[in-house]
Amino acid sequence: MNSAAGHVLFVETPAVRRKLRQEALAKWVFCAMAAAMVVPLLLIVGYLVVRAAPSLNLEFLLEVPKRGMTEGGIWPALIGTIYLVFISLAVSAPIGILAAIYLNEYARDNWFNRVINLAVINLAGVPSIVHALFGLGAFVYAAKFGYSIISASLTLAIMTLPVIIASTREALASVPQSFREACWNVGATRWQTIKSVVLPNSISGILTGVILQVSRAAGETAPVMFTGVVFFKSIERGDLFPYYLNEQCMALSMHLYTISTQVPGVKESIPYATAVVLLALVVMVNAAAISLRVYLRSRQKW
């Protein structure tokens, strides 16, 4: 390795070649694992769609279940899920976002805020069945909302809240500190800074975090089953406002469970079609979240 050996400098040695082989192997393995992720997804979706095919049409969406739920469509469950998701996020998103702003922008590192942090983290880890029991005790009995849409939505809201707080904090933390310093240095208050600089630059991340909770709220069965969702509810076909908030409703996740396990003689393709609708709902919402993010992100440059 000195200048006398100039003509053989920097060329591959056997050791280097061995390392490059390992490198190629490592890259291959990582890539294969990443690609493997796609396989279960394709299999699940493919299998569901094939089995569901006979029932997949607009009628299925708009029609109500018939003959003891063995035929017909899923309209009451679909609209019920939309109700639940919408109301629960209407409650949890504002609270979660405001709480996250406090935690990220105002809170100092003292015991009070540490306790809040701990609570948020632990709440995020609580299993949904425990949320269900809590919702039953707190909203159905203690607050006397009874078994109702409002109880079920609030339970879902409590469940999604910690995750919304966490994702919002992450979005806020990704705004460079130098932006805030620039604001403070012209004498802006924290609230002015948040309003004019922090929020506009983190809104894409915040919204994505909130929207991704739609799929969780739509998919959970236990919390709503204990607090306000029933097996069957008779409503009009295609009715957009069939439920009052103090009434019980149907929901897709619960409906899927019922027709797959509790009701004998259901037409074979119906449970699969219900699953496809649930999945499609989630995928559509996620796609909306991603496009919104891309759109907002493209307008913000740093």
Partner: peptide
């Protein structure tokens, strides 16, 4: 050229180059 060897030659190994 580093020590007489053109480092943009195709046979140059970046691993070895950065070692030196």
């Amino acid at each position: 050229r580093l020590l007489g060897k053109n480092i943009y030659d195709p046979d140059v190994s970046l691993i070895e180059l950065r070692k030196s």
